[in-house]
Write a protein that binds this DNA or RNA. Structure first.
Lengths: 175, 175, 175, 175
DNA sequence: TATGAATGAGCCTTCATTCAT
DNA sequence: AATGAATGAAGGCTCATTCAT
């Protein structure tokens, strides 16, 4: 049911998506939406939260602490790209909301971004670079939405290249 | 007069800014807004267009074709950061709209992004990397809005580091 | 169970009291309310009717036909005041509804008022005066809700004074 | 324009009167109502306030301080009855709201009632009796709405009779 | 019998947009 | 050229009311 909302939000934006339309798409009645989520904001937050959690967990799960840092980074990047590929709507909403700085809704997304940036700050040791990397990733992901023919691995490689100058020298593994 | 609209848009977003409020802030009557811009969309597009043109020109003007590529890139990066610093509202709206992929409004911003990306594609020789770089720049710029104490030059250096792996080997200048 | 409804009605008015709230307060499920009373109007009417009957019976029971008219009047007045004192919620709803002349609900209350007025018309011999007396009683009762420290007997005396000019000369009892 | 609202309120009560209906009856569009009164509550308050002021002024204007107290009282009573006769809707709403103790709207009417009661307390020297008299007046006025054939003077006489027991002995004028 | 879950209908409110002046 | 006044259309939200269990 959140999926219907997500599709609407991704399609027409928060303001453009009417509760009437969402309810109809979801095949339920408007009062039910309000029963479950309390308000339009509530519904939106719920959707964004779910998407954010899913993305975060996907990335966390992909990272094996036993591995060296570049391997882990690549795994995270791949998980990120996989999420984008599998959840177009979710990513779309997250990305769009990532820049909306007003409203109480943006806080959730800002939190997600921060979580990811913090993970990356641990990797890079530089907060600003971590944000740059996040931005690069988001931008590439979004560009990908319009060039789906590009294989996922290429993009991962691209992002690894962006990261290279800041990766610690342990790059060459011991084997 | 566009400035009043821009301030409102940056402050409350496109939907949050009512024509009433814009007209009052601009010290003008609503029918005049319609006379000049035709519609709310028209006003928004006009503002975004002006901001985009300004940014684009700033970046173009900074780039001296006689210089080697890394120098030109750094100049462009600096021009970009200068624009962000001097036009908070304009940048805010551009960045926010950069992710809204629906609606006829986004086309203009997409166009701007494309212009910049094309400039960078010429530099890097790789479209995807150019987009990654644009995203990194945007993200850093946005992060900067909340960390204004960081000097502009540091961010420029940071972005140059991101660009390094893809810069042609002409990196070591002849002179 | 009517009591819960009565409390809600007295507290928030007919429209302000939602069936949800009433059901919850009554510790019962909404469909049960509908099973017993058919509709919100039905519930309201039932409550008002019960309150009205109770008031009417209290006043009737207080009046001993063997007594002279002023004694009976005073007894009725006292019974009325006792009812108000003991059933704040009931009185509150009755009084509020006494003035709402629209809707099918008001008919019930109008009926109650009429019953009382008729009793008093028998006493006074003047319908208009009877209504004046009813209004005086209601108004005093309502004023009393905010001045509970005034003893009941004082108000009874007050109302007897209002009635005096219209009481038949049998005022001086034979015994 | 307030008159249309008044008619609707008198007819169907506050909740029963929809802004749509009021606007249509008033021959203007809904947004205009909001432009002038801000909200439904605002409109209601405005109407009640106007009615209350009119009633109060009518009663105040009728009372010549040079006259003895019973003459002034009768003049006030007549002014009251005249108002009721001439402004059915206004009176209807005032009377209905007089008993609604909840909500911020009731404050206005409570204020009006208090103003009148205070005038009468000055006459009678007894607050409770003043309220009784107000209630008698209201009730008679309301009864009158359904018995319009009764001449105004009769009701005035009736109310004077109610007041008699409490009027100071100056009742017999010096000439 | 009793209820959780569901809904049709309607209301207040706002906003982009346009006349009449 | 400029505006105050006016509106059609739509959106969020709630509520009395009913099935399916």
């Amino acid at each position: 049911m959140l999926d219907a909302a997500g599709a609407a939000f991704a399609d027409r934006g928060f303001h453009g998506a009417s509760m009437d339309a969402i309810a109809e798409t979801a095949g339920i009645s408007k009062p039910m939406l309000y029963n479950y989520f309390g308000s339009k904001d509530g519904l939106y937050v719920a959707y964004v939260e779910r998407s954010g959690q899913a993305l975060l967990e996907a990335m966390r799960g992909a990272s094996d602490p036993a591995e060296p840092v570049d391997v882990r980074l690549r795994a995270g990047v791949l998980a990120f790209l996989a999420y984008v590929d599998d959840h177009r709507a979710g990513w779309s909403v997250l990305y769009r909301e990532a820049s909306a700085q007003g409203g109480p809704l943006a806080a959730k997304v800002a939190g997600l971004r921060l979580s990811i940036a913090r993970m990356l700050t641990a990797v890079f040791g530089d907060e600003a670079f971590a944000h740059a990397f996040v931005g690069a990733g988001e931008s590439v992901a979004n560009w990908w939405l319009q060039h789906p023919e590009v294989p996922r691995a290429d993009l991962a490689e691209l992002l690894m290249k962006v990261a290279k100058p800041e990766l610690p020298r342990t790059r060459r593994r011991r084997t």
